[in-house]
């Protein structure tokens, strides 16, 4: 298998006045092309920090991040923008759709930045909307859709540019369990079509659907492997940390 994402001793520090918060603490990990990985961990454990680094929205304070063999830390802002545009598709917990634009226009945005001509852009955006079952709502504004529909629209937007990697940061966090499962099954479809999917979640039942779980605690990787192993599941009681190890 081909390595797509590789962290080598990646650290991320945030300076808060006098204190320094360590959000990522010498993380080593690799994700292969075509994998479906769930990153789990308690709140504040550094999941979003890792995701933002993977997504080239942020850069490590220390260490090296290789994306498809390229050292991201050495790339220009312009190159990074191109990578975000062509290789990565984001799905956010808060959907992050542009409120003043229609669903179709929202889905077109990444294609527009990729320089896809208008006609083809429209066609591909409609295709992506069909894939998530929103083709009939293409003229609606995000505010006219339910949370689940908005999240589907944002999935369509992530898929429209046909990126190699789909990054989803708690995509089901704001949804009820039924809609959450729907979104998850969409991600599974995307994975089956050959995409690499990295999913952040709190929900064990959702994490278990992934091929692999990476568990973070205080910015460190404490488990990396089979989602069905007993250690993969976090126990919410004192001493749970040791139990997980």
């Amino acid at each position: 298998m081909e390595t797509l994402i590789e962290f080598r001793q990646v650290c991320k520090y945030y300076r808060m006045g006098e204190e320094t918060v360590v959000a990522a603490d010498h993380i080593d990990m690799t994700i292969q092309r075509g994998e479906f990985v769930a990153i789990v961990g308690q709140s504040g454990s550094g999941k979003s920090t890792c995701m933002n680094i993977i997504g080239c929205l942020d850069v490590p304070s220390e260490g090296v991040y290789l994306l498809d063999g390229q050292n991201v830390g050495q790339l220009s802002a312009k190159k990074l923008a191109a990578i975000r545009n062509k290789m990565l598709g984001f799905i956010f917990q808060q959907y992050n759709l542009l409120p003043k634009q229609s669903i179709l226009e929202n889905v077109e945005v990444p294609l527009m930045y990729a320089g896809v001509p208008r006609g083809e852009r429209r066609r591909r955006a409609m295709e992506a909307l069909e894939q998530v079952g929103l083709a009939d709502k293409y003229r609606h504004r995000p505010s006219q859709l339910s949370g689940g529909q908005q999240q589907r629209a944002s999935i369509a937007r992530a898929l429209a540019g046909r990126p190699a990697i789909i990054l989803a940061d708690e995509p089901t966090g704001a949804l009820d369990s039924h809609t959450g499962r729907e979104v998850l099954s969409m991600l599974q479809d995307v994975h089956r079509q050959g995409n690499t999917v990295v999913l952040i979640t709190h929900d064990n039942s959702i994490a278990c659907q992934a091929q692999r779980i990476i568990r973070l605690e205080d910015g460190r990787v404490v488990y990396d492997g089979d989602p069905h192993a007993p250690q993969a599941v976090v126990r919410h009681r004192p001493g749970g940390e040791e139990a997980a190890q």
């Binding site: 929205l57 312009k78 923008a81 191109a82 545009n85 992050n96 759709l97 542009l98 945005v109 930045y113």
Partner: peptide, 16 residues
């Protein structure tokens, strides 16, 4: 600002 963040996440270059 948020819109700009979204646009950048979706691949908008600084120049754009």
């Amino acid at each position: 600002t948020r819109e700009i963040g979204i646009r950048k996440a979706l691949g908008a270059r600084e120049g754009v």
